[in-house]
Amino acid sequence: MSARVDSIRERLTVALAPLELAIEDESHRHAGHAGARDGRGHFRVRVVSAAFRGQLPLARHRAVYAALGELMQTDIHALAIDARAPEEG
């Protein structure tokens, strides 16, 4: 488990109290591409949280970005987000 994944997990857990949280480090799949040269990673997160009830996708993604804060500049180059309310499975 990488330190980056741990940081992401901690931030999202504190901010969104997720019922389900999965984080995948996909950096190895992008190792050769131009965007990966700065050393930051590619990640995929799936977050199920009551905080997303009644929110449109744009607001949900903004909440995830806000929770991650400066990690978006220091550690994360790209982030695929699947954000759902509990009843959306």
Binding site: P57, L58, R62, Q73, D82
Partner: peptide
């Protein structure tokens, strides 16, 4: 919105790739 791409319609952000 911290990442690219960013799609706008009539000046309003729609979202990035996933959305």
């Amino acid at each position: 919105w911290p990442t690219f791409p960013q799609l706008f319609i009539h000046g309003e952000l729609i979202g990035g790739c996933d959305i």
